[in-house]
């Protein structure tokens, strides 16, 4: 009897704690990339709201928690944690397996990301629920603030090992600084 076993992008790599920072893989469940066709954004947003309770998010924003919608680039968003309804007015592309997603928690979470991304992560400008498409090291990906000391980072699934490498090295450098006496 043939059987296929599912494997997550960061299987065997996470979780881990380095210094004050903890890295955990997020199993986001179902993910659908939704890109409304011309003039359809409003109707798509309405359809999403009525079927899964979250609207189509504005640029650089997320909406909802579970399920949720995360803006992920020009004219598109990821519907995460629910089956995407049939949407006449949008291209709907299964992305459930396309991303490696890591949650970063801890006192140095912001300092860690500041070693990898050029975006402004200050709490006053990048608030809870804000998301950005940007660089993480040399990778293109997404960063979302989940809380005061908590972020979600997503990169292409195939780059999971590099993401681990980059996050680990940055976290180790920060942890090592704590040992430098003045």
């Amino acid at each position: 009897m043939v059987k296929l076993i599912a494997k997550s992008p960061c299987a065997g790599l996470l979780p881990k704690t380095i210094g004050t920072v903890t890295l955990t893989e997020i199993d986001a469940g179902r993910m659908t990339l939704v890109a409304p066709f011309a003039g359809q954004k409003k109707s798509v947003s309405d359809a999403l709201k009525s079927s899964i309770g979250v609207g189509f998010p504005a640029p650089n924003r997320t909406s909802g928690t579970t399920p949720r919608a995360v803006w992920c680039g020009r004219g598109q968003a990821l519907i995460i944690g629910a089956d995407c309804p049939d949407l006449e007015g949008a291209a709907c592309v299964d992305h459930s397996d396309a991303w490696a997603i890591v949650q970063i928690d801890g006192a140095d979470a912001t300092a860690l990301l500041a070693r990898l991304t050029p975006i402004d992560l200050r709490a006053s400008t990048f608030k809870r629920g804000h998301t950005a498409r940007t660089l993480i090291g040399h990778m293109t990906g997404g960063i979302t603030r989940l809380g005061v000391q908590s972020f979600e980072v997503m990169v292409m699934r195939s780059m999971a090992a590099t993401l681990m490498h980059d996050l680990t090295q940055a976290a180790q450098n920060i942890a090592a600084r704590a040992d430098v006496g003045d």
């Binding site: 890109a35 004219g75 299964d94 992305h95 292409m156």
Partner: peptide, 9 residues
Amino acid sequence: RVASVTEQW
């Protein structure tokens, strides 16, 4: 609408 699905499959 154009979207990469290289990583999905």
